[in-house]
Design a protein around this nucleic acid. Structure first.
Length: 267
DNA sequence: ATGTCAGCCGGAGGCTGA
């Protein structure tokens, strides 16, 4: 079972890239972020024609997430607890059947668009405080899911650079909302409840980026960052075989500024 | 190099977010 995450940066502007990648990579599950449309604007028919079910949690103009899956979800949920006062569409999850346990196997997959958090303004900006609070809420959700021993994959754009080697120029990034103490503390706290960064465990090489800014020739200069992650519980780590980052997608026609990160699971 | 892109409103291009 192939599970991928991709910040698509507008699903409407990216239909060519999305279609092409789905047809070649053939993931079983694709977690999308920044679809930048309300539910009714999502190209459901086109995606269903490619053989996928769609769970869409959209929003006008900004953010918005979706999960495409070949299998029909057994359960779905949109939003994180505490979303009542939160207009921003950044979280959704599905439970899918797997071939294990005589067809009774289950896996839970979430799509995550963690807030960027800039500008930081000394750590006290509204946007940065929102990011940190959102990370706390994500951890609460993950904690509540851990007693469930089925595989769990939290896949998404975390807007977190985990290690200095996950960016081209650590000195330039340090202090940014993606790479500073309070952010990294929370990312660590999320992992310490029992989740692993699949790339770090299975590959771990430096300079394997998933995002390159459109500006200042970042792609041409390989001035990137690794911020798109698959966080897996122990059952998912037991099943995962490899992680790949499809950097070639960044060279396509009208590319997103992010590329897909793909996990191959023996499920 | 203030170097990009997408959506919004509104009907051009300035603003926002990343």
């Amino acid at each position: 079972m192939k599970i991928a995450t991709w910040n698509i940066n507008s699903v409407k502007a990216r239909m060519h890239a999305l279609t092409q990648w789905l047809e070649t990579a053939k993931p079983d599950v694709l977690c999308l972020q920044e679809i930048k449309t309300q539910d009714e604007g999502f190209p459901r028919m086109e995606v269903e024609a490619l053989g996928y079910h769609c769970l869409v949690h959209g929003q006008k103009s900004y953010n918005g997430v979706a999960i495409l899956s070949k299998a029909e979800p057994l359960e779905t949920q949109v939003g994180l607890a505490g979303d009542d006062a939160d207009e921003q569409a950044r979280y959704a999850e599905v439970v899918l059947p797997t071939k294990r346990l005589g067809g009774q196997g289950r896996i839970r997959v979430a799509t995550i668009y963690l807030p960027n958090g800039n500008p930081v303004e000394g750590g006290d900006s509204e946007k940065y405080r929102y990011k940190l609070a959102w990370m706390d809420r994500l951890r609460e959700r993950a904690l509540s899911l851990l007693p469930d021993e089925h595989p769990l994959v939290l896949a998404g754009d975390y807007n977190v650079i985990p290690r200095p080697v996950d960016c081209h120029d650590p000195k330039a990034w340090w202090g940014d909302a993606l790479f500073r103490t309070e952010t990294l503390e929370r990312f660590r706290a999320l992992k310490h409840i029992g989740l692993s960064d699949a790339f770090e465990v299975l590959d771990g090489r430096p300079e394997q980026y998933s995002f390159w800014d459109y500006q200042r020739g970042a792609w041409q200069n390989n001035n990137g960052i690794r911020i798109d992650h698959l966080l897996c519980n122990a059952a998912a780590m037991d099943a995962i075989e490899s992680v790949e980052i499809d950097r070639f997608v960044r060279d396509g026609v009208k590319p997103s500024d992010h590329v897909p990160v793909v996990g191959q699971f023996a499920l």
